[in-house]
């Protein structure tokens, strides 16, 4: 589903990603771990199409298409979803209005009829229960005044509503207490399916106790320095990231 080949990328003039190869098949969950500054978030931003980065070498193939040639909205409509590390607050725009616009933009792209207010509300209520989100968060402005946990729940709610093919979670666990982490992980796990791939980016192994990956990759200084099964998380937990650098 996602095929990254020899990716090199810079933020501004600074090279961050220095040659990444990664293949994620449908139904697989991959985790990327690594110390701060290793390029984890840059990778997720490049996949979602955030402005400000330039790919200097390599290519990314998504479902047979050149992902890098697509605008961010096209990627979203084609099924790429990035759960933001820092979801943006947008005053004055109702959360529910935004979600409905988003759901309908993607439905239209896929040749489906737009949902009307009633249908959308029904769909939303069901998904909100899953992430234990209080009703009033729908009538408030997008993420405005939301707690850290509420923002992350809102991200997962969007994921549940949009049913993407490729879910990228960028440090979704940061700033979450254990209860919120469980709720968020339950939401993500409910999306596990043979047609869907996930890329979970995290600094800590804790999240991977809840969202169990098929493969773990360790990123350091813009390169994958180690790949392995889920047991790699335990090893990292025990020894920290220091030993990886030494192994280089």
């Amino acid at each position: 589903m996602l095929d990254i080949q020899n990716l090199h990328a810079s933020a501004g003039d600074t090279p961050i990603i220095k040659g990444i190869d990664l293949h994620i098949g449908a139904g697989e969950i991959h985790a990327i771990m690594g110390p701060n500054g290793s390029g984890k978030s840059t990778l997720s931003n490049i996949l979602a199409g955030r402005p400000g980065y330039s790919v200097t070498e390599g290519e990314i193939n998504y479902g047979g298409k050149n992902l890098l040639a697509m605008e961010p909205e096209t990627r979203a409509r084609e099924g790429v979803f990035l759960a933001f590390q820092y979801p943006v607050e947008i005053p004055g725009v109702g959360n529910s209005y935004f979600l409905k616009t988003s759901v309908n933009a993607i439905r239209t792209h896929n040749g489906l009829d737009e949902l009307d207010a009633m249908d959308f509300l029904a769909l939303c209520e069901e998904k909100m229960k899953r992430v234990e989100m209080p009703n009033d968060l729908m009538s408030r402005s997008i993420n405005e005044g939301f707690s850290g946990g509420e923002k992350k729940r809102n991200e997962v709610l969007q994921m549940l509503l949009l049913e993407p093919k490729l879910c990228i979670l960028d440090e979704t666990d940061s700033g979450l207490d254990i209860d919120a982490l469980r709720v968020v992980a339950d939401g993500v796990n409910s999306l596990r399916s043979p047609e869907r791939a996930m890329l979970v980016i995290t600094h800590y192994q804790r999240l991977l106790d809840y969202i169990v990956p098929d493969r773990i990759h360790v990123l350091a200084d813009g390169k994958i320095v180690r790949s392995g099964g889920r047991e790699l998380a335990g090893e990292l937990e025990e020894k920290g990231y220091g030993w990886i650098g030494k192994a280089e």
């Binding site: 979602a48 199409g49 955030r50 402005p51 605008e71 961010p72 909205e73 990627r75 979203a76 409509r77 979803f81 990035l82 933001f84 979801p87 943006v88 947008i90 935004f98 616009t101 988003s102 933009a105 993607i106 792209h109 969007q158 949009l162």
Partner: peptide, 14 residues
């Protein structure tokens, strides 16, 4: 806000 524009576009809005 560029950040907000990107957030909305990453959710499929033109």
């Amino acid at each position: 806000d560029e950040e907000a524009l990107f957030y909305l576009r990453s959710r499929g809005l033109s």
